[in-house]
């Protein structure tokens, strides 16, 4: 999208909502904004209907701030908690049927490559842990096997939030949840490891307690997906409502998880590393 498309025509400017004019004047479009700049620009997602202390809402906010080219980014989701915040972003966002996000993103990315062969349209899947690890696992893995050039981001809150706190494949072993009345019987599904062996060129695991790292990995994941192949970011976004901790403890929970069982990890394939070295050395890298 060019800047001209969002810039209001002078004669009609007064008809536009202030919200829109602020986004054009002070938003992240065509501006070099990142996680470090939060608080100094109008964000893609501001108000949201998530619970107090929602880790996922913070995760989405950080991811969106980290997008290298928001004016050409499209987000595909699936029904679940993430839908509520993402539905109110100033980006093209769509969620349709359950678990189909990586299939939809595959079709979308390919069609955008047909229609805009000289442009990078960044197709990003942003979905909860149930959407990726359970109902959408086939489609996620197959998009990776096929080497689709999309970025998949899991907002891992280790529980089905929107439906009321049921066990997901990403819940911790032993955790007592709805539909797991005697505790979960198997460990977290190793999606991170599956990503490495299924064709992803860049894989990262990070928590919302490390916002700067989120900014960095999102940028890397999207740049690599443009040129090299599929990328996956697993973001720990704990849920105070269903994991039953106080809303003001979210960051503390994330920090403890980082120390305990959710350490920062990054995997990068050789060709992706070579590409990354090239773009990160270049000045004004990748902010095309």
């Amino acid at each position: 999208m060019s800047n001209r498309i969002i810039t209001p025509v002078k004669e009609f400017e007064d008809l536009l909502p202030q919200e829109y004019k602020d986004l054009v004047a002070d938003g992240p479009f065509f501006a070099e904004k990142g996680v470090d700049d939060l608080g100094t620009f109008k964000e893609i997602m501001e108000q949201h209907p998530h619970c107090a202390g929602c880790g996922e809402a913070l995760g989405m906010r950080l991811v969106l701030a980290g997008l290298p080219t928001p004016q050409d980014t499209l987000i595909i989701g699936t029904p679940g908690c993430s839908f509520f915040g993402l539905a109110q972003t100033a980006l093209n966002y769509s969620n349709t049927a359950f678990g189909n996000q990586n299939a939809v993103a595959s079709g979308l990315k390919r069609m955008l490559q047909i229609r805009y062969p000289d442009k990078h349209k960044d197709v990003v899947v942003m979905v909860g842990d149930g959407g990726i690890a359970d109902i959408g696992l086939d489609y996620t893995l197959h998009s990776w096997f096929r080497k689709e050039k999309i970025t998949t981001i899991m907002l891992d809150n280790e529980v089905y939030g929107n439906t009321g706190g049921q066990e997901s494949g990403m819940s911790k072993e032993g955790k007592v949840l709805n539909m797991a009345p005697t505790g979960k019987k198997f460990p977290k599904i190793p999606v991170f490891e599956l990503a490495k062996t299924s064709g992803c060129c860049y894989v990262a695991k990070v928590t919302i307690a490390s916002p700067k790292k989120i900014g960095k990995v999102i940028r890397r994941a999207i740049l690599i997906a443009r040129e090299i192949g599929p990328t996956y970011v697993q973001l720990f976004t704990p849920c105070p409502t269903n994991l039953k901790f106080a809303p003001d403890q979210t960051l503390k929970v994330a920090k403890e998880a980082e120390k305990d069982y959710y350490p920062f990890e990054e995997f990068i394939s050789d060709d992706a590393a070579a590409y990354l070295a090239k773009v990160e050395q270049a000045k004004g890298d990748g902010k095309s």
């Binding site: 595909i76 189909n100 939809v104 979308l108 955008l112």
Partner: peptide, 27 residues
């Protein structure tokens, strides 16, 4: 035809043609 592939099952097919159609082409 500009692009074609064999998907993993019919739900994936119908989801992917939905995605492609969202992208503004004929499928």
């Amino acid at each position: 035809i500009k692009d074609y592939y064999r998907a993993e099952n019919e739900f994936a097919v119908m989801a992917a043609v939905h995605g492609a159609s969202l992208g503004g082409g004929r499928v």
